[in-house]
């Protein structure tokens, strides 16, 4: 087993996070098998309490929709949006940060001013505006979340590239005549991957939260059940049927917590300086 995997698995929190996330992932993938009916379908009496009816262990909402089905289908949306928007944001951030950090000079100035412009606008407010303009759909939500979350990645990658660019092995690559694009991809980027992976893992959690917030505000995709939408829809019934909000809330909490734990574990396993925390 590699040193990385060993260090990661020694971190109990990270392993717990990994297990929770794996469970959520299994449920999300198996949703059509577990709940063959659409989560929008009214299947039973409204407002069945959780843990009362064996067929609907999570209860039903005010329209008689199965909350369990909602949770399972919501997991698909949350995880998918978290992963895709993070991937887009990380790719954009790497491209912009790498160009700024490697070339320096006016390229760096220009790209960093643009980055700062994006950073001055509150993330959620901008995401709301973007989704409202683009009309809510899964694509616009992914785009909005990616657009608000690439700047930190760009700044991180730029910082890494700035320091790595001065390292002797990069100069050696220049001397042997490698093309700048190749140097960035094969020499510098692999050495900057650890902090990028750590940031990306934590960004997935933020993206899930952002998506929930958007859906809560009614800016979710109308065709897809999502945890945020479930909380938003049941907020009027908060006094009468608190479980309707509580269930998706716990689902968001568990997912975000699991991803954060994994991110922490990755951080400890990839950053040799912090290794003493888990080792003697």
């Amino acid at each position: 087993m590699s040193g990385f995997a060993r260090r990661f698995l020694r971190n109990t929190g990270a392993v717990a996070g990994l297990m929770i996330l794996a469970a959520i992932l299994v449920v999300a993938l198996a949703a059509p098998l577990l709940f063959p009916d659409s989560p929008w379908m009214m299947v039973a009496d409204p407002l069945i309490l959780p843990f009362q009816d064996g067929q609907y262990p999570f209860g039903t909402d005010m329209l008689g929709r199965d909350i369990g089905a909602g949770l399972a289908y919501g997991a698909r949306v949350s995880l998918m949006i978290g992963a895709v928007s993070t991937a887009v944001a990380v790719l954009a951030g790497i491209a912009i940060g790498a160009a700024a950090g490697y070339h320096g000079g006016w390229v760096d100035d220009l790209l960093m001013r643009v980055t700062e412009f994006f950073q001055t606008i509150p993330q959620l407010a901008m995401a709301v505006v973007l989704v409202a303009i683009l009309t809510p759909s899964i694509g616009s939500i992914v785009a909005a979340i990616a657009i608000v979350s690439w700047p930190p990645v760009a700044r991180l990658v730029r910082g890494e590239f700035l320091t790595l660019r001065e390292r002797e092995f990069v100069q050696a690559a220049v001397v042997i005549g490698q093309h700048p694009g190749r140097i960035m991809l094969t020499q510098i980027l692999p050495n900057a991957m650890s902090p990028i992976i750590i940031t990306a893992s934590l960004m997935v959690a933020t993206a899930i939260l952002t998506e929930s917030a958007l859906s809560f505000l009614g800016l979710g995709d109308r065709n897809m059940m999502s945890w945020g939408f479930m909380i938003g829809a049941s907020r009027t019934m908060l006094r009468e049927a608190p479980w309707m909000s509580l269930m998706p809330g716990v689902a968001i909490l568990l997912t975000v917590l699991a991803i954060n734990l994994i991110g922490e574990g990755l951080n400890d396993a990839l950053n040799p300086q912090l290794r003493h925390r888990g080792e003697d």
Binding site: R167, E168, F169, Q171, V175, I176, G177, T186, Q187, N191
Partner: peptide
Amino acid sequence: QRRRLQMIFQDPFASLNPRQ
């Protein structure tokens, strides 16, 4: 032309890419 002009660096630990 770089091929014809090469360099040996100072620090044997910093001059080789640790991931290659």
